[in-house]
Simulated assay, not measured.
Amino acid sequence: MDIRYSTGKEPFKRMTTEELREEFLIQNVFVKDDVSCVYSHVDRIVTMGCMPVDETVNIEKNIDPWKNFGVHYLLERRELGTINIGGDGVAIVDGEEINVNHYDALYVPMGTKEVLFKSKDSKEPAKFYILTAPAHRAYPLTVIPYEKAIHKHLGKLEDSNERTINQYIHPDILDTCQLSMGLTHLEPGSVWNTMPAHTHERRMEVYFYFDIPENQAVFHFMGEPNQTRHIVMHNDEAVINPSWSIHSGCGTTNYTFIWGMVGENRAYDDQDWLKTEDLR
């Protein structure tokens, strides 16, 4: 398990490209029949990826719960959310099999002892993008099919930001302790996300970019509004954004990304908006 420690505003200003990538960029999210795991001390969020191809994979495959978390099993004091961006798959949660098909999401509560993932077709494997965060109580195990998500079509092509925000693990759909997750898809010809930019001091956020063609990229902007930096993102890569940082992106083509937030509240609109002309 890769462990990342918190970086404050002042050190951030002096970081090189290599240091920024080492601290905030998450690569190799999906590995065949394996689980990737990055633990961030920013609100203690854990970013994971699981791509079962020929095997049924336990999410604790590369985790020692006691050594890494001081618990007997991963979700003893944590909740988990996942969105499947690959082929149709199955989650086995404490022995219960649950279909989690393409673009479906699943919320797994605190106290769940075992979570396994498998694909329905090894030729089109499932790709479970996973976030887990500390929790204080157990809410119901819930599958959120794509059709049951809240779909908000926003922006316009003239501003290069026509997009659909798909809210899955969201206060208007289900209760969680602190985890929220959703998926935003940009239409062809649109390249900007989360612009005008905002911060939310009360929550951190992880972005996971995918559906980026091999010869394209997304420039992810982060940092204080008057001290912005960028990280070049390629397909199936994630980036950690502290609460003091903006989080915005511009691609060389349209793309899709999953956003996940944890922190003091789950108020989706609790955002401190910034004027684009004030960014530096």
Rank of each mutant, 00 (worst) to 15 (best):
P213A: 02
F208C: 03
N241E: 07
D211T: 02
F210C: 06
M195P: 02
N193P: 12
T194N: 14
M204W: 00
Q167N: 11
E201N: 08
Q178K: 13
M181I: 06
Q167H: 13
S190P: 07
T228P: 09
M222N: 09
N166V: 11
V239R: 01
D236E: 10
D236N: 10
N215G: 04
D211E: 15
D211C: 03
N215Q: 12
I240W: 00
D172L: 04
V218G: 03
H200E: 11
I173L: 05
P196E: 07
Y209L: 11
N161H: 11
I231A: 11
E214K: 15
P225H: 07
D236C: 04
L174W: 04
I212P: 04
T164A: 04
S160L: 11
V218W: 08
Y168V: 01
P242M: 14
F219A: 13
G223P: 08
P225K: 07
N226T: 06
H220D: 10
N193T: 15
R229H: 10
E201L: 14
V239I: 15
C177V: 12
Q227S: 15
L174E: 08
A197V: 14
N235V: 04
V239K: 01
H230N: 15
M181A: 08
L186Q: 02
R203W: 02
T184A: 13
R163Y: 03
P225Q: 09
E205H: 01
M233Y: 05
P188H: 06
W192P: 03
I173W: 02
N235E: 04
E187F: 08
R202K: 14
I165T: 05
H220Q: 14
Y207T: 00
P213M: 05
L183M: 14
V206Y: 02
V206W: 05
F221E: 12
E224F: 00
S160E: 13
V218L: 03
Q167S: 14
A197F: 04
D236H: 09
P171T: 06
G223F: 01
T184E: 11
E237D: 06
E205R: 02
R229K: 14
Y207D: 11
L179M: 02
W192K: 08
H230M: 10
E205I: 09
F210P: 01
T194A: 11
L183S: 12
H198Q: 06
I169R: 00
L179R: 10
H234C: 06
Q216G: 06
P196H: 09
E187A: 13
H185V: 10
I212M: 07
E201F: 13
P188F: 00
I173T: 08
E224S: 09
Y207L: 09
P196C: 04
E237Q: 13
M181Q: 05
N166W: 01
A197D: 05
P196N: 08
T176H: 10
C177T: 15
M222K: 05
L179A: 09
G223V: 08
H230E: 14
Q167G: 03
G189I: 05
D211W: 01
D172I: 05
E237G: 00
G223Q: 07
N193L: 10
R203M: 12
E205A: 04
H198V: 00
R203N: 06
A197G: 12
P225D: 14
E214L: 15
H185K: 13
D211P: 04
V191H: 11
G223H: 01
